[in-house]
């Protein structure tokens, strides 16, 4: 994030920046998306169903949960509830990033929220803090991620065992490292270190006790609570 030149407001500049910022993520999601294609096909989904799931749900972890539960004899409502629980963190993403979508029209917002995946949120918050968030940046990042996700699903459907051991290449840590890097980009925010340490500690405790996905919302919730408690009223709180 250090290679940002003069404030760049052109649409082309936004698109270039979006594609540049999304590029490391694309490499990380290919094996993950391919595995989804493979697993879902093995569980009996047709190619059309796999792509429908990825195109309409577009939330990796929860799609694995759905596939897993489909294989068990559980009622439909419990599958939908599990997916809702895994995706609950998006409520917070949406509330937070919505404040920076002043440049978006209603139709753009409707589409933008469909594509609000974890890296999209992290990169958009970082962009909003520095140059301001505009649709061209958001959708360049979003569409690149979306179509690579669908394309890699398709690869996984056809070439199931193509990537035998993604961990051997460090793919298993690529996304955690990327998210960590983006988190460090917010070090200027109020109470950064305290929120970071408290959230990490709470998430690890919840992960070991209640298990996934509760560590995300509950662990992060503790960090948000600390931020709220320590907040002091100020005159112009709209300016970041």
């Amino acid at each position: 994030m250090a290679d940002i030149a003069a404030p760049q407001s052109s649409i082309q500049g936004d698109i270039r920046a979006g594609l540049r910022d999304v590029s490391p993520v694309l490499g990380a999601i290919v094996p993950f998306a391919a595995v989804f294609g493979t697993v879902a096909t093995e569980k009996g989904l047709s190619m059309a169903e796999v792509l429908l799931a990825s195109a309409t749900i577009y939330a990796g972890a929860s799609q694995f949960v759905m596939i897993e539960l489909m294989g068990q004899e559980v009622p439909i409502w419990s599958i939908v509830l599990a997916v809702f629980a895994v995706n609950f963190r998006h409520v917070l993403y949406s509330a937070s990033i919505g404040r920076h979508m002043g440049a978006f029209g209603t139709g753009q917002k409707i589409l933008a929220f469909h594509m609000l995946v974890d890296p999209q949120f992290a990169a958009s918050e970082a962009r909003a803090q520095k140059q301001g968030l505009r649709p061209a940046y958001y959708f360049a990042y979003a569409f690149a991620l979306y179509f690579v996700w669908l394309g890699a699903n398709t690869l996984g459907i056809f070439f199931g065992a193509l990537i035998e051991n993604p961990d051997a290449w460090g793919f298993d840590f690529l996304l955690p490292l990327y998210f960590l890097g983006l988190v460090m980009g917010f070090k200027g925010r109020s109470q950064f270190w305290l929120i970071l340490i408290v959230s990490a500690a709470a998430a690890i405790v919840v992960h070991r006790t209640l298990g996934s996905p509760w560590h995300i919302t509950l662990g992060g919730g503790v960090g948000m609570l600390v931020a709220a408690v320590l907040s002091k009223p100020k005159e112009d709180q709209d300016h970041e």
């Binding site: 963190r89 917070l92 993403y93 509330a95 937070s96 404040r99 974890d118 949120f121 992290a122 918050e125 970082a126 996304l175 955690p176 998210f179 960590l180 983006l182 988190v183 917010f186 925010r189 109020s190 109470q191 950064f192 929120i195 970071l196 408290v198 959230s199 990490a200 500690a201 709470a202 998430a203 690890i204 992960h207 996934s212 560590h215 995300i216 919302t217 509950l218 662990g219 992060g220 919730g221 503790v222 960090g223 948000m224 609570l225 600390v226 931020a227 709220a228 408690v229 320590l230 907040s231 002091k232 009223p233 100020k234 709180q237 970041e240």
Partner: peptide, 21 residues
């Protein structure tokens, strides 16, 4: 302002919680 502070903490808090384990 406390809600505002909590929302401003979302990127750090939730993304940290996501990757910590």
């Amino acid at each position: 302002h406390r809600v505002e502070a909590a929302l401003s903490a979302v990127p750090v808090a939730i993304l940290t919680a996501l990757v910590a384990p």
